[in-house]
Each structure stands twice: as C-alpha cells, then as structure tokens.
Design a protein around this nucleic acid. Structure first.
Lengths: 357, 357
DNA sequence: CCCTGGCACTCTCTTCCCGCGAGTGCCAAA
DNA sequence: TTTGGCACTCGCGGGAAGAGAGTGCCAGGG
C-alpha cells in the first residue's frame, strides 16, 4: 500500500493506535465528533476521560485528529483516515450473500455495457454509496473486426469489435463517397487483413501502405486506407466512459444536508472529466486503491473518499470500478466488496474472451 | 392554444388584465412578491396603491394571485401564469444574433446526435435554463438499412439506419449461432427486401413469412426471420432518449437556494422517465406548448414551467425540444427561441433526408 | 510516573423576545 | 369610484440568556 501521506506504521504507540482506531470507527458510524467521554464509555479502554483527553491531545498535535471548534469532540483528519486505512482497519470479509449478489449480477449479463451497468448498480446497492465504473476501452487491445455501414454517402458508421468483447461504434464523416458494396468489401478486407492487431498497429500499417505502389493506382485501396485511418483517429481519443450510479442516494446523507455542500457535491459529480482523471491516475497500480480527502486532488469535494480497483488482467488493465462516498464511509466493508467485484469482472471478461476465440 | 385551466380570455376586465400583466412581468423580473406600492410606483397606472389593492384583491379571489403570507405582496398563481401566457404576454421576436447562433450551431453539425446535443447547448446558452431534447426515434419511420455485425457467435450488433438519418444500434443476444458470411447475406437481404418500410411493417411481414413454405425448409431464411424479429422487438421499446443540458446553471437560481428545494429539484431532474412522459404527452400537439406549475403533473417540481415544441414535420413528429425552468421564467423570450429552434431542427432534418435520397 | 477527579473556561446551539419594516384590509371622506 | 388614513398582521433580523457539551489544566493519589 502506498504511503500517501508519508505515514509510518510505527509512528504511534499501541495505545494511541487503539484510540485513533476507535475514534475513526465511531466517527464513521455516527458522523459526529467524538468526545473523551463517549470514548471512555465504550468500554474498550480502562481509562478515564481525562486520560483519554491526553492521548487525544497528542493525536491532535501529530495531525491525526482535529477539533471542529473548541468545545467539540475530535474528528479524524485526512491523515487520521490514512493511518486508519493503512494500519488499523480490519477488513470485513465478503459475506456469502454479498458474494452471491455480485456473482449473480455479473453472470447474468452478456453485453459488456450491461455488465458494467449492473456492476455499478450492485455496488451502489450493497454499499449505499455512489459507484463509479470505467467502461473498458479497446485502445490497447487486439481488434477482432471492423465493419463499416453506410448512413449517408459521406457518413459512415464504424463498428469495431475488440478481442476483449468491447464494441465501439461511431458515425464518422468522410471526404470520399462510398457505396454499400464498397463498404462491404472494405469491411471484409480490413477485418481479415488486420484482425488480431491493435488499433495502433493497424494505423501504422495503414500509413505505411499509403506509400506502396498498389495504393497509388487502386482507387478502392486508397479509399480503404483513408477510411481506416480516419476511423482510428476518430475512435482513438474516445476516453474511458464513466458510469455513475446512485448519485441520488448519496445526497440523503447527513453531511450534505446544507445547501452549500449539497450544491458543491452535485456539481462535483457532474465533473466527470475530473473523476476520470483521478481514476486514470490509479489504473497503473495493482490492487485496491483508497484515496481519502485531499489525496485525490479533487478540491471540490475535499471530504470525499474513493475506493477503487482495477479490473482486467494485470498485463492488460481494462478499467476501474469503485466507490465514491463521504470520507467517513465504511472502508472496511466497502473495500472488500470493490475488490471482490473487480475480480468478478476480470473473470467475466476473461471468460468472454475465451468464448469468442 | 389549449385552455389548460379552463380560463377564458374575457374573464377579466381590461384594468384587471393590465394589473395582472404588470404583476407577472415584475415577478418574473424580480422573483419577489409584488406590493400595491411598487405597482403604483411603476407609473403604468394612474391609480393609488389603495385602488390597486382592490383590483389585486379581486384577482386573488378569482385565483390569479396569491399571498405567500398576510403581509407580503402578491405572487401569480399557476392560473395567473396561464392567463398571462395565453392572453397577456407579448412575445419578443428572435433577435438577429440569436437567430444566427441557432442557425450556426444547427448547420455545423452533421451526425444527428451532435445536432441534438448542440441544439440543447445553444438553448441553454441563450436562455440560461435547463434544456430538454428528445432524440428522434425511428419507430414510426421508414428504415433505410439494417445491418448485422458479429460480436460473438450468439451476440450480434444491429445497426438500423432510418430514412430520417437516425441511427440506432444495439447488441442483441440470439438463440441461433451465426457466421460472418451469413450475417452479411442477411443484412443484404433484409435491407433490399424491406428498405423503405417502417419497423412495424417489417415485423409484421417477417411474422407472416414464418408461415410460408419456403421458410420451413430454408434454414438461412429461418435464421433471418428469427434475427429480424428479435432485433425489432429489442429495439422497439427503446424510448425517446432524453438529453438534458444546463442542469448546473439552474441550481444557482435564487429559488433553489435552500437545501430542500435544491434536493427536490435535483432528484426531479434525475427522473428522466417522468420528463419523457410529460413531453410525450405533448408531442401530438401542434405548435408551441407551455405548461406551468401543476399543469405538467410533475408533482416533485410544482414550481416549474416547461416550454416545448415539436420538431419534424407535422405528419411525422420526430421529437421535442424545450426548456425546463422555474415557473417565473421569461416566457416571452424563451418561447420564440424554442419555436425558432424547433423549426431550424425540422429544416435540418428535412435537408438531411433529401441529401440521402 | 501515570492516572484521575474536579473545576473553570469556551464555544455552539436553541429559544425567546423585541422592534422594525412592509404590506394589507377596511373605512370614511372627497 | 377613488383616495388617504389607520389599525392590524406577519416575517425577519438582532441581541440576550441559558443549556449543553467538551476541553485544558491542575493537584492529589496509587
């Protein structure tokens, strides 16, 4: 796990750790600031409130806790959450029921889009938070087929099927005019000629072909090459498509009861580009990623937490799934779920790939 | 114009009409309740506040005005707005600049989706309200071509191009297994055989074909028919796709400054089905539709107004464009814009159709 | 040396009250 | 029919006061 705020596991003595752990857990559960009294009453410590106050003061000095105002209890800071996540929390297992729910939803769907949608839904349902799902792109993957369909004589719809089962389609404008027959030939040619290669490889080969003898004379070949390059250029910049589910549920959480934070949250959720950016920055990392508060650089919603995991094989990352919620979410419960779902998705896609070959 | 609240144009004498008109206009401009004093000060009436109070009291009795509380001014009711819209407001013309902006945006785009998106954007920009745009469906329109592309052996991507330039695509699951070659043949067959007919007609013919001699023996024909019916059934229920633009801007309006109405508005905007339903209920009507407050049956946002117009020819309605905003929006300015845009869209689509034939 | 009870202090939140301003309704006079 | 006057109502903002919660610190006890 990355040491995101330069924290070391032995920064705190065992008593402080226990206190911090308890405070974070209680704060997650209640959302309120935690006082020394309530901490003492929980029974975990054989200490008086006064003693706990000393420990808490130390934790505050070290930056793990903060006071909303003088006479309020303590609230964990980003740093406190980070420490909790890295060293203190005990991950809950994924219950039989949860496992079944996830498996069931993922199994049932076939089209990749449905799978992703359902994945988001199931995550939202199980965690009651906003789920985020990256659709897979096929940029770095082998193409199975490319087909071209006439919409108007200079508007062609392209359908690219990836080896990973991803389907991308887009209507593009072309300089040349095409007939149905031509397009059929072109589809067949490109698919047989370039099937199994990545879009990038195909583009490079097409460009190389421009210089060849034959291309100069064969008009159909010229059009083929132009269309191919055109298509790939148009499709390539397609970014990860982001699916958000459950944005409605999160607005009912107590932290968003006032108009200001409600509006801010709402606007933040609309800024999909920013979310994409954040998630993309994690896609290289193995395993579960947890970002709290300021770590995500998402300044609009500084009090958010993100739990995300990559799906797809490690050599071929396909996308990310995750949860976006208030910083005080139940990481111990959410994290295993995200993890399990990402594995289920990876498996599913692996299966589909095999099915097709 | 429909008499949506059973109002008749001669329900009010000319003095009452003028007062109502002024109140609505001032309320639209300021958002505040209007008092007899401010009304007297505006100079339009040679009357004292006391006299105006009498008129206002009458208007209140008749249901055109209401008081938020005893010692506040008057605010127009739904009924007041309805009367204003039907009989009192003087539509502003569409300025040269606005006309150019709309024409420009609509001209520039080619793909139908881009057109619709830009249409929504330009409307939001010009009115600073939420715009709603129905994507055209091709249910009731002639089909130009149907193509089938192999994704996996039992998963086929269908691309239907309508004569109106609408492209619909969907991945469907099939019972039969198909090869690329078969699909190519089927595409060609269906397109040549059924091009120019509506989805509904095609479906009926396909079903009739099931009973014919040939279908029983020719295996490819069986698969063709099955795939065709399957496709149409899957695509048909595709409802109007709704595009919303500018949801962010509307949240800054003063009427949504408190958390409750902010949340309610936000949730309402998520309920696309309901919006679709409302707009669909108007699609039969000619010309501009304006719904205020409770008239839309959209109980979540009783203080909203909707200005919408159909685009497409009257014999072949394609969809709706419109504006969703607080009830006190500038109908006189918004309505002509919506109207103009709907005509521009209709023209655009007409052109595209010609281009293709 | 660490823990604990006690105490003074601080800060927020709620409630209550009061007065101001705005606007109405009604009445009597022009 | 219009108008000025006047009493009445209501909402809103600004203190004031009190309750409640929690802390920090200190001095005493194991």
């Amino acid at each position: 796990m990355v040491q995101k705020l330069g924290i070391h596991g032995d920064d705190l003595d065992s008593r402080a750790r226990e206190v911090l752990r308890e405070i974070v857990m209680q704060h997650i559960a209640s959302g309120e600031a935690i006082s020394s009294r309530t901490l003492a009453k929980c029974g975990r410590f054989q200490l008086s409130p006064a003693s706990l106050r000393n420990v808490m003061a130390d934790l505050e000095d070290a930056g793990y806790l903060a006071q909303p105002h003088t006479s309020a209890g303590r609230v964990p800071t980003d740093r406190g959450y980070r420490f909790f996540i890295d060293y203190l929390m005990k991950l809950r297992g994924v219950s039989q029921r949860e496992r079944e729910t996830i498996d069931h939803e993922v199994r049932d769907a076939n089209a990749i889009e449905d799978v992703m949608h359902l994945a988001g839904n199931v995550l939202t349902e199980l965690t009651d938070q906003v789920s985020v799902v990256f659709m897979p792109t096929l940029l770095q993957f082998a193409v199975r087929s490319m087909d071209f369909i006439l919409v108007a004589e200079n508007r062609i719809m392209t359908v690219i099927v990836g080896a990973n089962g991803v389907v991308v389609n887009k209507v593009i404008e072309t300089r040349f005019h095409f007939t149905r027959d031509e397009l059929e030939k072109i589809s067949r040619f490109i698919t047989t000629e370039f099937g199994g290669q990545t879009l990038d490889q195909i583009r490079r080969k097409l460009i190389r072909m421009t210089e060849q003898e034959r291309a100069l004379h064969d008009q159909l070949m010229q059009k083929t090459i132009a269309l191919g390059i055109n298509t790939i250029n148009d499709v390539a910049p397609l970014e990860h498509e982001l699916l958000l589910e459950g944005t409605a549920t999160i607005l009912n959480k107590p932290e968003f009861s006032d108009a200001v934070s409600l509006r801010r949250t709402f606007l933040a959720l609309q800024e999909k580009e920013k979310l994409v950016e954040i998630l993309e920055s994690c896609i290289g990392e193995d395993g579960l990623q947890i970002l709290v508060g300021s770590e995500s650089n998402f300044t609009q919603i500084h009090n958010f937490g993100i739990v995300a995991a990559r799906y797809g094989s490690s050599s071929a990352p396909l996308g990310m799934v995750g949860i976006l919620g208030p910083m005080r979410m139940e990481y111990a419960r959410v994290a295993p779920l995200v993890d399990y779902l990402s594995r289920a998705l990876s498996r599913k896609i692996e299966e589909q790939k095999e099915q097709q070959s």
